[in-house]
Design a protein around this nucleic acid. Structure first.
Length: 748
DNA sequence: TTAAACACTTAGCACTCCTACT
DNA sequence: AGTAGGAGTGCTAAGTGTTTAA
């Protein structure tokens, strides 16, 4: 067990090296010729795709027809398996011989691994009917709330002069409030789960919040066409304002964006407007643009009082629409606002950028709530599209969006039971994978020499998904979205094979756009068998052809779920992310370190995961500046240190020659000064490295979505690091279940 | 069997808010 | 008190994977 982990760890660290390099590659390429090469490459691929792509798909012939049977065993002999996995080979063979027995499958079922429900703080006896208990809890909560409110008003009334006692009092209150919050928290993880498919029993809410209606432009602000003032109809004017507001953005200069916008804008025009306005180039939005800028500026310059009023008004909306009642608990809604209309801006080269995202009316919205709850009222003069009572889903409202035709949902906040339970389950599945990952790895390594082409392709894909944490790569409709890929949808043009590269053999160079059009660039040494298979898959194919032409995500996932219930491609990402964190934390932190050092280690472990998952971000706009500022500070501190050192020397000299005890204490003080200076310098330098390493890496995504929070909680307990140091308030709320249940000895 | 519909998680960006500094 | 810049938050697009319908 340990050895396997170590081996895997080695692979990861190696990889970390290459990925770090990868980021710098990316940096340098941004200004150099690489970008050119890439855009050329992708342009070429599009050409290919449109000409040959959909009509004739090149399929890799069956293995049997290519290779005599003997040669496949030949390959086995000549190629040792990846070191990572060889050790386990024997054990696996035995395991694989026996058909997967039903009981083993049952053991693997998720529910069985969720810790037995504890009832530490259950209000009263077990025999009490659940509904009764709920009611009582709710009642208690209400009582508490009123108390809190009365207390809360107290300090506000006597705010004029803050005495020490009052400050102290406020502090106590804050602590009390925190404790109370903790007490009030719905400890759903201590309750029984509902029967299959049922997500709730009671659900009541106020419906979504609609954005304000469009306010027509004042007469002083005009739109011009060919230099002539034109008064637009409200509908056309609203869309014109959307465009005018974006004029500072680069994408309003893009051809696709402009064309899509103009086409959709014309649809909103009256026939007269349509016959007049035929060329976007001749449109002048400058007055509208100026007005918008002035508005933004004005908002910034509001007085404190006005800002407070605005904030209060917002809070009122949140209080009214931002919560729902789910099984007698008040739960926060994640996105209770209907998305306002505007111009669609997808990520990357999106073919639909610039299109009009229409205003959603209550008539477009489906409401979902409990049968026995009060139905939310539609805005005056409107009605809902439908009201349904489906307790097998978690959404409160939904509508169909007009750009892609997909459904948008209003759902609960991440700290809710519904989301939390799902999250917990996700990590349990990933932990389950830990127990059988070895045999799965062994199996796909065997499959690399299968006679069936599908199986080989599946094996190689799985190898990538496991080793590189690639996403599954569902197929997408061409022309509907930006051209991005994942593992199964990789095309020949996305990889380059190198027999030799930088002293490594069998290197695969990946270069493609993944989710959100984020570039994935990596050079990875792979085992020979994978390399040979890739060569085979690429034979007689055009750059725009699919690499895994016989494979898709459905096929892959079907196979995976037969290996372990609940196993899909994305579980590997979760598993590898979490196991990497755990192992990196073990490796990097020492109990004797101080808190700052421990946190740096935590960040580094987190960063290793972010790199693995390719979680990137645009370098902050102010990055160079703030880095330079920090460097200046460091330089200043260095000078100070040098000065302090010379002063110390001087003092020492004098103390030695004169032997005055006063001078001796001066020496001590100077010594302390030097030490302090050194410490501060070190701290800043560490900060600088941390920031530099983080320049293009986003830690948040993995922290929020891939790292089992129990690993972090256990680490905090072991290392005596307060949980607040690694999770902010929101994160603590989201991971309340983990913070509450995890002991120091937790192992992922 | 395939495609579309559906439900839900994951993702980066832009804004706002807060805090540590001057 | 004012400000820079980092942390936190809201937003919504873009994925994954299951279910339903044709």
């Amino acid at each position: 067990m340990g050895s396997e982990n170590d081996a895997k760890g080695d692979a990861k660290t190696k990889q970390k090296g290459t990925t770090l390099k990868r980021l710098s590659d990316r940096k340098s390429s941004a200004s150099g010729g690489d970008v050119m090469k890439n855009s050329l490459k992708s342009a070429k691929s599009k050409e290919k795709k449109s000409s040959a792509g959909s009509s004739k798909k090149v399929k890799t012939p069956e293995v049997e027809s290519l290779e005599p049977v003997s040669s496949s065993s030949d390959l086995v002999k000549s190629e040792p398996l990846d070191q990572d996995f060889t050790a386990k080979k024997k054990g696996l063979k035995r395991k694989r011989v026996k058909e997967e027995p039903a009981e083993e499958a049952a053991q693997l079922a998720v529910s069985s691994t969720l810790p037995v429900q504890r009832r530490k703080r259950h209000l009263s006896g077990e025999e009490e009917d659940e509904g009764e208990a709920e009611k009582r809890k709710a009642q208690k909560k209400r009582e508490k709330k009123t108390v809190k409110k009365e207390e809360g008003e107290h300090p506000v009334s006597k705010r004029a002069k803050k005495t020490r006692e009052e400050i102290e009092e406020a502090r106590r209150l804050k602590i009390k409030k925190k404790e109370e919050e903790e007490q009030n928290r719905w400890r759903w993880w201590e309750e029984e789960k509902y029967e299959d498919g049922v997500k709730w029993k009671f659900l009541e809410h106020k419906g979504p919040y609609f954005p304000p209606e469009y306010q027509p432009l004042p007469d002083s602000v005009n739109f011009f066409y060919k230099g002539e003032k034109v008064k637009l109809s409200p509908a056309a004017e609203e869309v014109a304002v959307f465009f005018a507001q974006m004029l500072d953005h680069e994408y309003t200069t893009k051809k696709v964006f402009r064309e899509n916008f103009f086409k959709d804008w014309r649809k909103e025009m009256t026939p007269d407007e349509r016959s007049l306005i035929k060329d976007l180039e001749k449109c002048d939005f400058s007055e509208i643009h100026a007005m918008h800028k002035a508005k933004v500026e004005a908002r910034k310059n509001l007085s404190k009082e006005e800002k407070r009023a605005l904030k209060e008004a917002n809070q009122k909306i949140v209080d009214e629409y931002g919560y729902c009642l789910l099984d007698h608990h008040r739960e926060r809604i994640g996105n209770f606002k209907i998305e306002p209309p505007g111009l669609f801006r997808g990520r990357g080269e999106h073919p639909k950028q610039g299109m009009l995202k229409k205003r959603i009316q209550p008539e477009d919205v489906i409401i979902n709530c409990g049968k026995d709850s009060s139905t939310p009222l539609p805005p005056a003069g409107h009605r809902w599209k439908e009201v349904r009572h489906d307790n097998t889903v978690t959404w409160l409202a939904s509508w169909t969006e007009n750009i892609q035709g997909s459904i948008k949902y209003i759902m609960l906040n991440a700290n809710s039971k519904l989301k939390g339970e799902k999250d917990w389950e996700k990590y349990e599945v990933a932990r389950k994978l830990k127990s059988c990952v070895e045999s799965i790895r062994n199996e796909y390594l065997q499959d690399l020499r299968s006679r069936q082409m599908v199986t080989r392709q599946r094996a190689v894909a799985l190898y990538f998904i496991d080793k590189l944490a690639l996403r599954a790569g569902n197929e997408k409709e061409e022309g509907e979205t930006a051209d991005t890929v994942g593992c199964c949808s990789l095309r020949v043009e996305h990889i380059t094979l190198h027999e030799q590269l930088d002293g490594n053999e069998c290197v695969v160079e990946f270069d493609f756009l993944g989710k959100d059009s984020i570039r994935y660039y990596n050079k990875v040494p792979v085992i020979k068998k994978v390399f040979k298979n890739l060569k085979l898959f690429m034979e007689n194919k055009e750059p725009g052809d699919e690499l895994f032409d016989r494979l898709n995500t459905a096929l892959l996932n079907k196979h995976l779920s037969s290996l372990m219930p609940g196993l899909t491609a994305k579980v590997f990402r979760t598993y590898n992310a979490s196991i990497t964190l755990q192992q990196q934390l073990k490796e990097l932190t020492n109990k004797s370190d101080n808190v700052a050092e421990k946190l740096l280690s935590y960040n580094r472990a987190n960063r290793a995961v972010a790199i693995l998952c390719n979680h990137q971000r645009a370098a902050p706009k102010t990055f160079e500046q703030s880095m330079a500022n920090l460097q200046a500070k460091i330089d200043a501190r260095k000078e100070q240190l040098a000065l302090a050192k010379t002063e110390l020397k001087q003092a020492k000299k004098e103390a030695k020659s004169k032997g005055d005890p006063k001078l001796q204490s001066l020496v001590e003080r100077k010594k302390a000064a030097v030490k302090r200076c050194e410490e501060q310098l070190l701290k800043m330098e560490v900060q600088a490295t941390d920031r530099e390493e983080n320049k293009q890496i986003a830690l948040g995504t993995s922290k929020l979505n891939y790292l089992d929070p129990r690993i972090s909680v256990a680490w905090c307990k072991n290392m005596d690091v307060p949980i607040e140091k690694i999770y902010n308030k929101t994160q603590r709320e989201k991971f309340a279940w983990a913070i509450d249940m995890t002991e120091a000895d937790f192992e992922f």
